[in-house]
């Protein structure tokens, strides 16, 4: 076992900022949805819109970081070990069996994580951003005289945005639980806070 820097400084900054934003956007978003009452509707709308802009700027930063550092390769889906990984969560984990996928700096994610995070990146987040932008700015085309792309009905936009929100909440619940499934109960959490994690030595 060797202590290694797994999550670099920007990685952690991005992760925790995003975590905070998703929590805040869910709070304000479900208030706008009429399912919660906390900030008051008008404040909820204002906070949600402003937090959404912060989130989008963060996304631009993250995309830049992923491509300049090559970190995007972490999310390439793979079938290797997928079956074993599923079997681990359904069985091995209860018998204290070793993790089937070895975590390294160059390959931090197991095949299930790769699939789920890729799905978030190329499906859920884009749906949320696009529907969110339409929700916020649906009148802008008309403002500049482009009548043809004026949206007359918010329902479709709102329904997509709501579906995405439910998926994200569900993701967060499972994600929070899976923190506890590292080498020890807290090793994953510590790694995302400090950046360092004890990883198995690579076989030479």
């Amino acid at each position: 076992m060797k202590k290694q820097l797994v999550y670099k400084r920007f990685n952690r900054f991005w992760h925790w900022t995003q975590a905070g934003l998703i929590f805040f956007l869910a709070m304000t978003g479900f208030e706008i949805h009429g399912a919660l009452a906390f900030f008051g509707f008008e404040n909820a709308v204002r906070y949600h819109s402003n937090a959404a802009v912060v989130f989008m700027v963060l996304i631009v930063f993250a995309i830049f970081w992923h491509f300049t550092t090559g970190e995007w390769k972490q999310y390439l889906p793979t079938m290797d070990n997928l079956r074993e990984q599923i079997a681990y969560y359904l069985d091995g984990i209860f018998r204290n069996a070793p993790h089937p996928t070895r975590k390294t700096v160059l390959s931090k994610l197991n095949p299930l994580q790769r699939l789920v995070y890729l799905g978030l990146k190329i499906l859920v987040i884009p749906v949320m951003v696009m529907s969110g932008l339409l929700y916020m700015y649906y009148r802008y085309p008309q403002k500049y005289g482009i009548e043809s792309i004026k949206i007359f009905n918010l329902e479709t936009v709102a329904v997509f945005h709501t579906i995405g929100a439910f998926v994200l909440v569900s993701f967060v619940i499972v994600h929070l639980y899976l923190i506890t499934t590292g080498h020890t109960l807290t090793s994953n959490l510590k790694a995302m806070v400090t950046g360092y994690e004890e990883l198995d030595e690579e076989k030479k």
Partner: peptide, 10 residues
């Protein structure tokens, strides 16, 4: 017959 945020939902 129209969607109003905070009131309507699918």
């Amino acid at each position: 017959g129209f969607y109003m945020p905070g009131r309507n939902y699918n």
